[in-house]
């Protein structure tokens, strides 16, 4: 099993070497890149906003319920919610959500192309299929995921605001005061760095599992699940590593 793991890691890096080669035609690459950004971004916007509002709402409510002491200032609720949302929840949870949404779509799309010999057709035409199919997806996810993360942060903070406004657990003034208290741009840079790295992992691992399918529909389903599990696992490990390095 260990040997199989090392072989898979080796295959992954060989695959990356194929992916990161010069596109056969830049105009087609750009067209595919824009198409992928549109599909990934617009396609995920609704689910990201719903999850983010809910997440922001719950984290604000939980924080307000835990901090019921006159010793702790009211703005702490907004401050704690913002810090949790910006630094941890949005980059990690939304990346994991996108693994399930975008990652599984990438594996299924490339896997079905493999099963129906469309990848072989590209290869025989003299096109590098790994670069032609995967490179636009990698670049698109590297751009789109951080944008989705920014939207997610905004929606989560909005969710928190709405909760505060409806439940009146703290005043909206104190909540906003907490959101702006000791704001550091570095926190956003840290969140964006994490999201970008997670986007790279998500798109390349999902593509790898789709690309290496050998068989039919059954293997396609298995590969999709494997892609999600492995991407999520790597993201969680990297989350710890990056946090250690950057904070």
């Amino acid at each position: 099993m260990l040997r199989k793991g090392f072989i898979t890691i080796g295959d992954y890096f060989i695959f990356l070497n194929k992916v990161f080669s010069k596109p056969a035609k830049w105009s087609i690459f750009l067209k595919k890149w824009v198409f992928e950004m549109d599909a990934m971004g617009i396609g995920s916007m609704l689910i990201v906003s719903i999850v983010s509002v809910a997440m922001g709402s719950v984290i604000t409510l939980q924080t307000a319920l835990q901090i019921e002491s006159s010793w702790i200032p009211s703005w702490t609720v907004g401050f704690t919610a913002r810090t949790s949302i910006v630094m941890e929840l949005c980059p990690t949870i939304i990346s994991l959500l996108l693994v399930g949404n975008i990652g599984s779509r990438i594996t299924a799309e490339i896997g079905s192309m493999r099963v129906t010999e469309q990848i072989d057709a590209l290869e025989i035409m003299g096109i590098n299929p790994a670069s032609h199919l995967v490179l636009p997806k990698v670049f698109a996810s590297i751009i789109v995921n951080p944008i989705l993360c920014v939207f997610s942060i905004a929606f989560a903070l909005l969710g928190g605001y709405l909760t505060v406004w409806i439940t009146d657990c703290v005043s909206t003034y104190n909540y906003i005061d907490g959101l702006t208290y000791c704001f550091r741009v570095y926190d956003v840079i840290y969140a964006m760095t994490k999201t970008t790295i997670f986007a790279f992992v998500m798109s390349t691992v999902a593509s790898f599992y789709g690309y290496k399918i050998d068989g039919g529909a059954l293997e396609l389903g298995k590969a999709s699940t494997q892609g999600i599990i492995v991407s999520s696992f790597i993201i969680l490990i990297l989350n710890v590593v990056i946090t250690n390095i950057m904070l």
């Binding site: 079905s112 192309m113 129906t116 010999e117 469309q118 072989d120 057709a121 290869e123 025989i124 035409m125 003299g126």
Partner: peptide, 16 residues
């Protein structure tokens, strides 16, 4: 050389 080749697959392999 591959640009001088054309192949028709069993399942046609047209891009969906």
């Amino acid at each position: 050389l591959r640009t001088e080749m054309g192949m028709v697959f069993q399942g046609a392999a047209l891009f969906d």
